[in-house]
Design a protein around this nucleic acid. Structure first.
Lengths: 293, 293
DNA sequence: CCAGTTCTCTGACTAAAGTCAGCTACATGC
DNA sequence: GCATGTAGCTGACTTTAGTCAGAGAACTGG
């Protein structure tokens, strides 16, 4: 389908959807407080924290938030306490009364979603839920951005940790201690470590290191389980290939284990060719290569 | 899938979607005029007409609209002319300058949709477009309401006209002139004519008439071609069955033509049994019946 | 042609939403 | 312990969005 038709589909959907469902937020109206205040209450309830975090998440002005919080505390819905770690900061959280109010917001919004589904037959409801789940995964995956980070940054370490933990469920695997030497190979100039980030949280990662003769090796490629099936791995792989090419490589190689069938299938789809063993990695059983054009 | 899970999917999608795409309307911002004004400009560009129509469509206050229009005319974006048919009314339309502005809104909103798709691979874009097209159809179909109308009302006539025109493409079919006698059979107390309406426009119809002995007959069932595949026909059929039951019938019958294979399949799914010919309709080849419980 | 109705516009409001500069208390690096 | 910076608060403001009660012109049925 050409991109213009796809764009048209998105816009058409957008129109139907916002028109019929309206902003979900409309359900925040009529609760005795203006929409902005309720929106903030909802945000606090979804994730308590400092005022600064709240501001960053909502993109609202400092003075504006301050005043809204005053209103919410006056109404007994949220509590503000000085952060013991830095007493300039203030921690915001819901009071029991605020939680009750938040639950009300939750159920209103659920009610709204239910009213959308209600007129449909069971079969149609299922189709709609399936379609929206698929769209959700893809929309969220489209919002993921790739960042080149230091292999020892906290985000990279967290991702690699999950990667190794997961590998260990497929076969006996001992990652050893993360060493500086090892990490250095994933740093510029010849290496890179890429983190896929959604809304600040790492959801996938992959490293590139130089093997000499214009060959780069892809290592530690991992996708968060909740993000699989959305093609994020393919996008990451393409991104890594482009990065390898940008750092002067003409070929990428990788090894993997026969138990990782989904990964092996993906490498095949992505144009990788099976090659002979090129290293002595005892965990690897399959070896792939792709020439970058 | 239980309805609570379906509700959760809708809400989750809603959150991802509105967060990432934002209200599409945000793209109306930063055009030198406030959002409300631009929204109205967009609405006028989408469909010119009288001020009253515009108000009805947007649900805005008369005074508010009047002021917005003043601003738009002052800026040379729209022109107001007295309606020759009723000089109290005023016709609103875009000036060439206004059209240029409207095109800008259009391209901004298309740009926004494109940016959503852009990071995705072609395969993912296709999946997303497909999922949203499916969701669009279902969401819009959920918003369709069934109304019992007079069989000679303008909506009913328009729908039946399209129905007969379409039948004629399947086999030679002459509806004859719409007669009062014929229409009367689809009126209360024993008959009904049901129109499915989306946003004021008829998208499906179906009539019920009494055959005696607690039997009702479904006739002139039609679904707008753009609305097929969304299960609207199933919903309409269920609605007609309920209506038949409410008017004291225990059985519904219908006849159809062998060329209408999709309809025949649907009757099967809906629990209808094939029966012997029960009338002398020369166009009918298949006859169905269902006992209402 | 008159009474009542309809359509749009105007004046006079209000509440909500947001902006900005400056203030105070606290933290940190030298 | 002092300069510098940061987090949140406050006062004073503007813009936007929307409401409501009429006024005036134009239409309609009797």
């Amino acid at each position: 389908m050409p991109i213009d038709s796809q764009t048209a589909v998105v816009r058409r959907f957008n129109r139907s959807y916002t028109q019929r469902i309206g902003a979900l937020e409309d359900s925040f109206l009529g609760m005795g407080a203006p929409l902005g205040t309720m929106r903030l209450l909802f945000e606090i309830g979804s994730h308590a924290g400092t005022v600064a975090e709240l501001r960053a998440r909502t993109g609202l002005d400092s003075g504006y938030v301050s005043r809204q919080l005053k209103r919410l505390t006056d109404d007994g819905l949220v509590s503000l306490t000085a952060d013991p770690a830095d007493r300039r900061r203030r921690l915001v959280e819901l009071t029991p009364l605020g939680t009750a109010r938040w639950n009300e917001l939750e159920s209103r919004s659920a009610e709204r979603a239910r009213r959308l589904l209600e007129p449909l037959t069971e079969r149609q409801r299922d189709r709609l839920a399936r379609a929206l789940a698929e769209a959700d995964l893809l929309v969220r995956s489209a919002a993921v951005v790739f960042e080149t980070v230091d292999p020892l940054s906290s985000g990279a370490r967290a991702a690699v940790e999950r990667y190794t933990a997961e590998l260990a469920t497929f076969f006996p695997f001992d990652p050893g201690e993360p060493s500086d030497d090892d990490a250095a190979r994933f740093r510029p100039p010849s290496g890179r470590f890429v983190l896929a980030v959604d809304d600040g949280a790492p959801v996938a990662c992959g490293g590139l290191r130089d093997l000499g003769d214009g060959v780069a090796e892809i290592k530690r490629m991992w996708v968060h389980p909740g993000w699989r099936g959305a093609g994020l791995a393919s996008r990451l792989l393409r991104h890594l290939e482009k990065t390898a090419s940008d750092t002067g490589h003409t070929t990428v190689r990788l090894d993997t284990n026969e138990n990782l069938t989904a990964a092996i299938a993906m490498y095949g789809r992505a144009g990788y060719d099976r090659i002979d063993r090129y290293n002595d990695n005892p965990d690897a059983t399959h070896f792939f290569e792709k020439h970058l054009t």
